[in-house]
C-alpha cells in the first residue's frame, strides 16, 4: 500500500536537475557506484545487464544535444513498483518520501523493473565482486546486494542514516528531517543537481520548484515523482519530458 507523506512532520526529499548545466561527464554515476557499493561491471556486461543506479542518457533534440541523468524518480502519487511487488519488498517511506527496496525480501521476479516507467531499476545478474584489494573501499554504511535481486537509487540512504546518527549525537532526536546530500549531487562538477526537503518551504529546492520552471518526466502518468528537471530550451524540454503536444 502507498502511504502518503504527512505534511510538515516528516521530510519529503526531492531533487532538481538543471539539464542546461549537465555536460554528461558521468561523475554522478561513478560517485553513486562508489557510495552505494555497486560492483564494477562484469566482462560482457551491457546497458541491460550492468548495474547503474543512475544513468546519463544523451538526448538528440535536433540542435543542441542534451544529457539526461535518470535515477529512481521517487514517485509518491502512484508508485508502480510498490503496487506490483508481490513480496512487499518495495515501500514508500512516509518519513522521507523515499521509495525503498529491501533486497532480502526481493525474489527477483522483476515485475517492478517492468512496471517502472523510468527504467530506473536494475537487476543483479551476478554475485557482487570486487577486484582484490578494492573491497577495502567498500562503504560500511551500505550493504551490498546479492545476486538475483533488484536494486535502485534510494537517495543515498546510508548518508541519511549517518546524518540521523550525527543529529542524535548533537542533541536532536534524529527522527525528524535531517540535512544531507546524496553522492551524485556532491560529485556533480557543474552544480547541475540540487537536493533538499520539499516539505521545507524555505529550502532552496522548494523555492526553485515553486518558481515554475521545473517539470517532471512523463508527468501525464501522474506518478508524482519528487525528482524535477529544468531547462531554458524548449527543444530540450520537448525531447525529454514526454509531454503530449497541446
Amino acid at each position: 500500500m502507498i502511504r502518503k507523506n504527512a505534511e510538515g512532520k516528516h521530510a519529503r526529499y526531492g531533487m532538481l536537475i538543471d539539464l542546461d548545466r549537465c555536460d554528461g561527464c558521468g561523475a554522478c554515476m561513478v560517485a553513486c557506484a562508489v557510495e552505494n557499493n555497486i560492483p564494477p561491471g562484469r566482462p560482457g556486461a551491457n546497458a541491460r545487464t550492468g548495474l547503474n543506479w543512475i544513468k546519463v542518457h544523451r538526448i538528440e533534440t535536433g540542435g543542441r544535444p542534451a544529457f539526461l541523468p535518470i535515477m529512481c524518480q521517487q514517485c509518491e502519487d502512484e508508485t508502480p513498483c510498490v503496487e506490483v511487488c508481490p513480496q512487499n519488498a518495495v515501500e514508500l517511506d512516509p518519513a522521507t518520501g523515499v521509495v525503498g527496496q529491501i533486497p532480502q525480501r526481493c525474489l527477483g521476479c522483476r515485475y517492478c523493473v517492468t512496471a517502472c516507467p523510468y527504467h530506473a531499476r536494475v537487476f543483479n545478474w551476478g554475485d557482487p565482486e570486487w577486484p582484490a584489494g578494492m573491497e577495502k573501499t567498500l562503504n560500511p554504511l551500505v550493504s551490498p546486494r546479492m545476486r538475483g535481486v533488484v536494486e535502485k537509487c534510494n537517495f543515498c540512504h546510508g548518508r541519511w542514516h549517518a546524518a540521523r546518527e550525527k543529529a542524535a549525537a548533537d542533541g536532536s532526536t534524529g527522527n525528524g528531517p535531517v540535512n544531507y546530500v546524496p553522492a551524485c549531487v556532491e560529485a556533480c562538477p557543474a552544480g547541475a543537481m540540487a537536493f533538499g526537503d520539499l516539505n521545507d518551504p524555505d529550502s532552496a529546492l522548494t523555492r526553485a520548484v515553486a518558481a515554475g520552471e521545473a517539470f517532471r518526466l512523463l508527468d501525464l502518468l501522474q506518478t508524482g515523482p519528487k525528482t524535477f528537471y529544468k531547462t531554458a530550451f524548449a527543444a530540450v524540454r520537448k525531447g525529454v519530458a514526454g509531454e503530449r503536444d497541446a
Binding site: 533486497p103 554504511l141 550493504s143 542514516h161 546518527e165 542524535a168 542533541g171 532526536t173 534524529g174 527522527n175
Partner: peptide
Amino acid sequence: PDNAWFPHAPHVKAA
C-alpha cells in the same frame, strides 16, 4: 548482520 543499521546515539543519547 551487515544489512542492519543500529546507531547508539539516537538510542542512548536522544532516547
